[in-house]
Amino acid sequence: MNLTLKIWRQAGPNDKGGLHTYQVADISADMSFLEMLDVLNEQLNEKGEEPVAFDSDCREGICGMCSLMINGEAHGPEVTTTCQLHMRSFKDGDTITIEPWRAEPFPVVKDLIVDRSAFDRIIQSGGFISANTGSAPEANSVPAPRDKAMRAFNVATCIGCGACVAACPNGSASLFVGAKITHLGELPQGQPERWSRVVDMVGQHDHEGFGGCTNIGECAAACPKEIPLDVISQLNKDLRTALKNGH
């Protein structure tokens, strides 16, 4: 198939960017979206134009490195990551607009690449269980109810990609934070730090400049790992309990 691409190009964090139009031809339906961009880049390189910078690493939907707003949808039209999106989701002659994640706490580094280190700082603020190496008790000494462990796992599958922020009209990262709060809060090991964790993580979230959640639901619809909206409810509940108890 032949496609018209409108791609955001921006030389560096402080440069002005804009949409540039490119044509690609003979794209096979079996290609992944990023392989289609590889083809474009090879073409640009040949012409002596600098290739488009975009992030990817595992290319199998698990590392969370890839991003891209594709025709106004985070990770494109399917419920998956951009690297797992295939060209059979598009038609010959389509025009595809490709933009970076847009959020103040995710500044553009170059072209389609943004800086998501705000997520790391949110984890640093409390997204962990303090258990020094060597201090752990025998693993089966504390059973964890299976349903809770399952819920913990289901939300622990968050890949930290940032699509939730990109899709949210408020630029909020509540889905990401809620997923971690729920993951750790559902496990017996996560209880001792449960209340301080939620207060600290929400504090860091706001400090980074993410917007406030108004429960619109674009995040969950964009999430490639289908993290459900109820983690935000859990986040709010834990926060309310924590504040009530003076944390």
Binding site: F128, I129, A131, T133, G134, S135, A136, P137, A139, V142, A149, A152, F153, A156, H183, L184, L187, Q189, G190
Partner: peptide, 8 residues
């Protein structure tokens, strides 16, 4: 160690 850290 992993269970103590919350690996589900």
């Amino acid at each position: 160690q992993c269970v103590a850290q919350g690996v589900p």
